[in-house]
Amino acid sequence: MVETASVGWTRRSAWADVAKAGRFGAQGTTGVVVELLYGLGIATLIVADGGGPALAAALRDRIGIEPPLTPLIRRSGGRALAWAGPDRWMLVADRRDDLDPVCEGLHALAAVSNQSDGWASLQIGGPDVRRALAKGVMLDLHPSAFPDGAVALTAVSHINVVIWREGDAFTLLAPRSMAGSIWSWLSASTAEFGCEVRG
């Protein structure tokens, strides 16, 4: 019989070994500010057959958000619902622990799959953010085409991503295994503007 191991069961961010707080690129200017988001709670909700109205009611009741039926994200406090396809949403909580209370008992109305560890998430802002993102995002991010609250499922640098806009900042979710590749693209694309990374 072996003793229970005395190692710390600590979480390791998708960004560990990939990106860390600091600055890079052009000196004397900060065109882009990247925040490495860590600890978001993310779950995929897919409506069960016939469960749509009940799920919407439950979500209204629990988090005060009407599930968007078009590519939008709606937020209430630390929680948000992002459209992720027909009858499908991403429930996003600022704190991972806030996820379970929302999802409790929803299983009859929707397939609930926790994906909190599966995404490497970033928030990207700053005066040059659109110029930097234009080097990989194949969509028009101008406010007239991609306004506050817009969501897109698209590909950047051959990587499937979810992107949404809140205010002037964009949140980008990339598959965890490809964090290094998405960072390689992002750092190459933001360097000319001067980039500050917040951990």
């Binding site: 072996v2 003793e3 229970t4 191991a5 390791r12 998708a14």
Partner: peptide, 20 residues
């Protein structure tokens, strides 16, 4: 385990398995 614990799991198995 959830992916954030992947490193911890592998490390725990290595540590626990040392005597074996």
């Amino acid at each position: 385990v959830p992916a954030d614990y992947g490193h911890a799991l592998a490390t725990a198995l290595t540590e626990a398995g040392r005597p074996l």
